[in-house]
Design a protein around this nucleic acid. Sequence first.
DNA 1: CGGCTGACTGCGA
DNA 2: TTCGCAGCCAGCC
Length: 115
Amino acid sequence: MSAEKDKQKNAAEFRRRVYAVVATIPEGKVTTYGAIARYIGAAASSRAVGSAMMAVPDDLAIPCHRVVNKNGCLSGSHYFATPTLMRDLLEDEKVKFKKNSVVMEEHFWDPSGEE
DNA sequence: CGGCTGACTGCGA
DNA sequence: TTCGCAGCCAGCC
């Protein structure tokens, strides 16, 4: 039955789903790792989502800057070319900021709600 | 095969 | 309100 193989496939597909969801985020909107994880069927895999994000190939052009944590803080900003690039990209999309966090109350986007 | 880390989240004190 | 702990999953050594 290739249960082990199927598991690996699931893991690979898991990452692929993450990219798909992130790529579906509309411009000027942001979402959380937990929302993505829950949407792909892994509500408790919010961490795995972040892990997958750091493995995002540049060829897919994934707007990972639209993915923030529950606090609206740009957790992955440190993984960008510059720690300010992430915020700059969001501001360029008319995304409002409260101190150092995104105003998710106005820009939070839930993939489950759009599906 | 075993253990640690990490772009997270939720709950309790 | 802020701080700390535990749980979850994938990736890497």
